[in-house]
Design a protein around this nucleic acid. Sequence first.
DNA 1: ACAAAAAGTTAGGTATACCTAATATATTTA
DNA 2: TAAATATATTAGGTATACCTAACTTTTTGT
Lengths: 228, 228
Amino acid sequence: MLKPSDEKYLRAIYQISQSENTGKSTISELAYYLELKPPTVLERLKILEQEKYITYTKTDGIHLTRSGQKQALNVVRKHRIWETFLHKVCKFSWSEVHELAEQLQTVNSEKLIDRIFMLSGEPKFDPHGDPIPDKSGTLPASERRPLLNSIEGCRCTVLGVNEDSAEFLNYLSELKIGLNEKLVVEKIFAFDGTLKVRFKNAETALLSSKVAEKIMVSCTKPGCLCGK
Amino acid sequence: MLKPSDEKYLRAIYQISQSENTGKSTISELAYYLELKPPTVLERLKILEQEKYITYTKTDGIHLTRSGQKQALNVVRKHRIWETFLHKVCKFSWSEVHELAEQLQTVNSEKLIDRIFMLSGEPKFDPHGDPIPDKSGTLPASERRPLLNSIEGCRCTVLGVNEDSAEFLNYLSELKIGLNEKLVVEKIFAFDGTLKVRFKNAETALLSSKVAEKIMVSCTKPGCLCGK
DNA sequence: ACAAAAAGTTAGGTATACCTAATATATTTA
DNA sequence: TAAATATATTAGGTATACCTAACTTTTTGT
Ligand SMILES: [Mn+2]
Ligand SMILES: [Mn+2]
Ligand SMILES: [Mn+2]
Ligand SMILES: [Mn+2]
């Protein structure tokens, strides 16, 4: 049985590997993500390596083994189910659920996860639009891509975000960007990559490339070239 | 803010003080209850004493201070609300909820407790019949007493139990004793205090004094002398 | 009242999970 | 390519939460 702290590490490694296109993570990234210092992380990685959940070499970085991947997906499942439950059933806001789910995900009962998943209506995606793995670790398909990869004219639906910090999520509220929001990419300013988007209600907003990179969307304009 | 482990100690001290009629607890009782060794407990008590949650002297045992009592009641509140939620909303059985609630009670969010309390229908008693303190620490009134204190002829309703071990709760299921069950004390055998009780459906059971001591009831026979 | 048993206490030890400071190794960048 | 910078590693330290073994004090039974 995994310790709560193992679960944190494996989920973090999984998340970082996902957001990087390299599929790996490094000690300093992990340390930053977990709010720990590099020596602490290194020490722990050695144990996770002994336990065969990861491989680590300086040159190749940190990779999940098959077994580690399976464990990580299970933690991700628990985390996202709790987030969904908190949002749908307990009526917490989009930006409150992550922190609470971090605490709740440590509770050790598959039966409990099953029940709260049922109570939440067994959805495929969490309140941030992230896919919920099934028990075998399979993720439901989606055509998510960063809003940043848009071309002018894209009609997108906001599926989720790639960052969980309250700071970021509150900023999105400020910008009036919410889950399942539809928006049109009206203009892209080549100078710094800023996007001008228009909402359903005809209001517009300017999004920096830093923000647009973290907003995950699917394009709904038929025949759009954004996905190449 | 209390550490999870402080909360465990304070709840344990509260529970023991309640079940003893002396209103205090001792190191070895606590150690037994928490499944720890006496030196571990002693070490911790010194810290809890420094933090002004308890007083401890060898002669007088362990007492909660006013502040400790307040904290303890809050933990009890969280614990019993989780138990209620697990039973009523998640459909866990009477005997499963305690262990899970021990894990869940450590989660730190008053708002979450409020929400799940609401989802459970804001009841006054938990699935074991124990009263749920309100936010100020006030317990709803009830005339609970151990079944053991009965006299022959008592008509009782089972309100709860004084022990949470799965072993005990499963034994009760075996004996067909459940919450809100009505029973009549038909005979008390002076030799060892064993009680013969009769259920609504006319079946009977023999309960050892050890079991009867832990079953909490209220007597519903008008003018019964059991309560003196 | 005294021996035996129980409860409490002290001393010293382990494992975990974190840290800082110093050093070594890679990677940038001028 | 050499210096500057970033990243990884080693060494050694702290706090917490547990333990056993040995000793002391208190309670209990005869
Ligand atoms: Mn999250
Ligand atoms: Mn999420
Ligand atoms: Mn309980
Ligand atoms: Mn209970």
